[in-house]
Design a protein around this nucleic acid. Structure first.
Length: 731
DNA sequence: AGCACGCCGACT
DNA sequence: GTCGGCGTGCTC
C-alpha cells in the first residue's frame, strides 16, 4: 500500500502547500475537506487540495493531521481547480486564496451543518434588567440589554458583535434570565414552483435569449451590450428560468454598491425558489448560512458581489456578470487582487457553461474580446417602450457665468424642467462640503498629516476629513499658520445641496453619497422618495450612476467632468465615458427625451467630442486605437509590484533590488520604480514597478520565476508589498 | 503572518 | 542583575 500524503493549503504568506500524514486512527481526508493541523507551535485549519503518494520532504519530517473537519468535501474538484488557477495566475499564496474563498466561520473550523444555537432574554430577565442592582454586573447587564433589543440571537453573531459574551451569558443562563434554543440547519430540498410569467421580449431580447439558450451545456462567452432600460435583467430572468428547469443552478455577480438587494428582489418576484444573496453588511453567521444554502444546492440562484465567485454551486449551469465594466469586480486592496469578472469567465470555462457579461458601457477588454471573436456580442438596441436616447450637450464654463459651481445654462434648464414637473439629477464626483479649506490671508491649505492630500471640509459635522486615510479633526475656525480666517474652497455634494436649497426653495432635494446614506435602508428610503415624486432634485456621487433607473428625471447635470480629462492613467478616459453614459442613462422615459448637460472648461476636448458625436461605441473604437498605439491593455499585459514602507525610501529601494533580480527578461519590460500617485498615504510611502509584456504567457512565466526571487529579498521584509496582476490603476 | 530565539539598553 | 526592544529564521 502506498503511503498517502495530504497536500494542505494553509493561510500563511508562504506560497506553497504543506504535506501532512493522515491522522493516526482515521481514514485519509478527501480532497476539498478541511483539516486541523499542527503548524510550528500553532494549530491551523487548512484545506486538503490533493492526496499524493510522494512528498518532497522525508517522511520523518512530516507531521500528522490532527483532525479531519469534513467527511465530505467542502469544495469540489472544480472549485479546487479554480482556486489553484487563481493562486497561480495572481501569483498569490495558495492558502490565502483559499481563505478568501471561504466564509470566516468555515476558516475558523466551524461545522457548516451544526445546529444553530439562539439566545434570548426571558421574562425574568426583563424584570431583572429594570432592577438598578443589575447594573453592578456590568457585562451581564450589557449583554442582557442587547438581547432585550432583539428576538433571538445566533451564537456566531454574538461572538462577532459582543466579543467575550460567553462568560456573562453563562451566568445569566444559571439565573434563568436568558434561554437558549437550538435549531437544525435547513438542508431540505428547495421548493421550486413555476416562475411567474415574464413580459414578452422584443426581438433583440429574444435573439439574446435564444443565442445563450442554444449554448447551454458548453462554454461560450456573451457580451450583452445594451443601454440602461433596454431590458438586460429580463434577458437574465428568462435564461435563469430555463437553467432552473434543467435542474441546474445560476451564479449572478453584481457590483458592490447596493445593487444586490434590487436584483434579488427582481429574481425573488419571479421565481418561487430560495435565493442565496451574499453582499456587504452581512454578519459572519449569515454568510455561512447563505454559503451553505448555495453549496448544498438548497438555493439554486446565488446573487452576490465579488467574492461570491468562489462559492460552490452544484450543477452550475450559467454565470451572469451584471455591469461587467464596474471597477468593484477587481479587488483593489490587500494582497490577493483578483478580478471576479475574469475568474467568473474562467469558472464558466472550467465547468463548461455559458457566461453572460452585461453592460451598457462594456469594458475595453470585453470589446476587444468581441473584436477577436472570443466573445459573442448580443446587442439590445431598444430602450423600454421605445424611449429616445438622451441628448448630450456641453456647457462651456469659460463662456458662462457660474454660480457656486452651477452654470447659468444649467440653472435655467433646471428651472424649465422643474416647472414642467420633471425631476433633475446632478452628478458630482466629490462628497463632503468642499475639497479644500484655505486661508484667505496666507494661502495655507489644511493638509492631512498622514497623507499627501488635503482635508475635505464636512460642514454639517463641523469636521475635516481625509478621504484617503480616514483621519478626522475638528473644523478649525482660524488658519493654523497665521491665525486669520479660513474658508472652504471648491464644491462637494454637501455644498451643492446647500446651494440648491437656496436657489430652488420649495423643491425637495435628495442627496446621495456615502456620508448621507450609510446603510442600505437609508439608500432604499431615498430611492423611494425619488420614485414617489416627493424628491424633485437629486444630487450625488457615483452612487447615483449605478443601477437605479429614475424615469421622471428629465435633466442630468454633470458638474465636473474635467478632473479625468488630463489624467495620466491610461484608463481615465474609459472610466469618464462610462460614468457619463451611465449617469445619462438614469434619465428618460418613452414620451420625453432626456437632456444631459456636461459642464466643462474644455468643450473642444477630443474625448468629449467623440463621446458626444459618436456615442460610447464610437468613442471606444477610437480610444482602442490609441491604446493599441501606446501598447496599453488590452493590447498588452501588465502587472504592478506595489510596495510601501514607513521609511521614505524603503519601498523604492526594495523595488530597485527587485528589478535587478532578473534583468533583460525576454519579451518583458520593467518600468520604474516610480513613486505612487500619492506618495504618502496613512503615514506610509508608496512606490511601484510596472511589468509589461505583449503576451500574457510571457508575462506569466516571468512573474512566476521573478516573484519567487522577490520574496527572498531581505528588503522584502522591511516593506509591505503586493503584486497586482491586470491592475486597474497604474498611476 | 505568527511565533520563537537571541543579543544589547534602561529600570525595579 | 532582569524586562523588553525588534533583527533573523522557521513553519510540512
Amino acid at each position: 500500500v502506498n503511503p498517502v500524503f495530504c497536500k494542505v493549503a494553509l493561510d500563511t504568506p508562504l506560497r506553497r502547500c504543506f504535506d501532512y500524514l493522515p491522522p493516526r486512527d482515521a481514514a485519509a481526508p478527501v480532497p476539498g475537506a478541511r483539516v486541523l493541523v499542527p503548524f510550528g507551535r500553532q494549530q491551523l485549519v487548512g484545506v486538503v487540495t490533493a492526496l499524493a503518494d510522494s512528498s518532497d520532504l522525508p517522511v520523518e519530517k512530516l507531521r500528522q493531521v490532527l483532525r479531519v473537519l469534513d467527511a465530505t468535501p467542502l469544495l469540489s474538484a472544480a472549485d479546487l481547480a479554480l482556486l489553484e488557477w487563481a493562486a497561480a495566475y495572481y501569483h498569490h499564496p495558495i492558502g490565502s486564496v483559499f481563505a478568501t474563498a471561504l466564509p470566516k466561520l468555515l476558516r475558523d473550523g466551524r461545522d457548516p451543518g451544526s445546529p444553530q444555537v439562539f439566545w434570548s432574554i426571558t421574562a425574568a430577565g426583563r424584570v431583572w434588567l429594570q432592577d438598578p442592582k443589575s447594573l453592578r454586573a456590568k457585562r451581564q447587564h450589557e449583554l442582557l440589554q442587547w438581547l432585550a433589543a432583539r428576538d433571538a440571537c445566533d451564537e456566531e453573531d454574538l461572538a462577532e458583535l459582543l466579543p467575550g459574551w460567553r462568560e456573562p451569558a453563562r451566568a445569566l443562563l444559571a439565573k434563568g434570565f436568558v434561554a437558549t434554543t437550538s435549531r437544525q440547519r435547513d438542508v431540505s430540498a428547495p421548493v421550486i414552483s413555476a416562475a411567474t410569467a415574464g413580459p414578452r421580449l422584443d426581438p433583440d431580447q429574444a435573439n439574446a435569449v435564444t443565442a445563450v439558450t442554444n449554448a447551454l451545456g458548453q462554454f461560450a462567452a456573451f457580451l450583452l451590450d445594451g443601454v440602461t432600460g433596454s431590458g438586460k435583467t429580463e434577458v437574465y430572468l428568462q435564461l435563469v428560468e430555463t437553467v432552473l428547469a434543467r435542474g441546474e443552478s445560476v451564479l449572478v455577480l453584481c457590483p458592490e454598491i447596493g445593487l444586490a438587494p434590487q436584483l434579488v428582489e427582481r429574481f425573488a418576484k419571479r421565481f418561487a425558489t430560495p435565493i442565496a444573496a451574499l453582499h456587504s453588511g452581512m454578519t459572519d453567521r449569515e454568510r455561512l448560512g447563505v454559503w451553505h444554502d448555495a453549496a448544498v444546492g438548497r438555493a439554486r440562484i446565488l446573487i452576490g458581489t465579488r467574492s461570491a465567485v468562489f462559492t460552490p454551486l452544484p450543477r452550475l449551469g450559467l454565470v451572469i456578470v451584471d455591469e461587467e465594466h464596474d471597477a468593484s469586480y477587481k479587488q483593489q486592496e490587500g494582497g490577493f487582487r483578483y478580478s471576479a469578472r475574469d475568474l467568473a469567465l474562467l469558472r464558466a470555462q472550467q465547468v463548461g457553461v455559458p457566461i453572460v457579461l452585461g453592460s451598457a458601457t462594456p469594458s475595453f477588454e470585453s470589446l476587444h474580446n468581441v473584436a477577436t471573436a472570443k466573445f459573442m456580442p448580443l446587442l439590445l438596441t431598444r430602450r423600454a417602450g421605445n424611449a429616445q436616447p438622451p441628448r448630450l450637450s456641453l456647457v462651456d464654463l469659460r463662456a458662462h457665468a457660474v454660480h457656486k459651481g452651477l452654470s447659468i445654462p444649467l440653472l435655467q434648464a433646471m428651472d424649465r424642467h422643474l416647472a414642467a414637473g420633471a425631476q433633475v439629477l446632478l452628478f458630482i464626483n466629490r462628497r463632503g462640503y468642499a475639497p479644500t479649506l484655505i486661508c484667505n490671508t496666507c494661502g495655507w491649505i489644511a493638509p492631512c498629516h498622514a497623507c499627501d492630500a488635503r482635508m475635505t471640509v464636512h460642514q454639517k459635522s463641523q469636521r475635516l476629513s481625509c478621504h484617503h486615510c480616514g483621519a478626522e479633526e475638528k473644523l478649525p475656525e482660524r488658519c493654523a499658520r497665521c491665525g486669520y480666517e479660513v474658508r472652504p474652497l471648491g464644491h462637494g455634494t454637501e455644498r451643492v445641496e446647500e446651494t440648491l436649497v437656496e436657489r430652488f426653495p420649495g423643491f425637495a432635494i435628495e442627496r446621495f453619497d456615502r456620508d448621507k446614506l450609510r446603510q442600505q435602508s437609508q439608500l432604499e428610503g431615498a430611492i423611494d422618495r425619488v420614485h414617489s415624486g416627493e424628491a424633485r432634485i437629486l444630487v450625488g456621487t457615483q452612487m447615483l450612476t449605478k443601477g437605479h433607473h429614475f424615469p421622471e428625471v428629465a435633466l442630468v447635470g454633470v458638474l465636473n467632468a474635467d478632473q479625468s480629462l488630463f489624467s495620466t492613467d491610461f484608463r481615465a478616459a474609459e472610466r469618464l465615458a462610462q460614468t457619463i453614459v451611465q449617469v445619462a442613462g438614469r434619465a428618460g422615459r418613452a414620451d420625453r427625451v432626456g437632456d444631459v448637460l456636461i459642464q466643462t472648461q474644455y468643450p473642444e476636448h477630443p474625448l468629449l467630442q467623440s463621446l458626444l458625436n459618436e456615442g460610447y461605441g464610437g468613442f471606444a473604437a477610437q480610444a482602442l486605437v490609441e491604446r493599441n498605439t501606446a501598447h496599453w491593455p488590452p493590447y498588452s499585459r501588465l502587472a504592478l509590484l506595489r510596495a510601501s514602507g514607513v521609511q521614505p525610501d524603503a519601498a523604492i529601494q526594495f523595488l530597485q533590488q527587485a528589478k535587478l533580480l532578473m534583468e533583460n527578461p525576454d519579451g518583458v519590460t520593467l518600468q520604474g520604480p516610480i513613486p505612487a500617485a500619492m506618495v504618502r498615504k496613512a503615514g506610509r510611502y508608496y512606490a511601484q514597478l510596472l511589468v509589461e509584456s505583449a503576451q500574457r504567457l510571457r508575462l506569466q512565466k516571468y512573474l512566476a520565476e521573478w516573484i519567487e526571487k522577490v520574496e527572498q529579498l531581505p528588503s522584502a521584509r522591511k516593506v509591505r508589498w503586493a503584486l497586482d496582476v491586470d491592475p486597474l490603476d497604474v498611476f
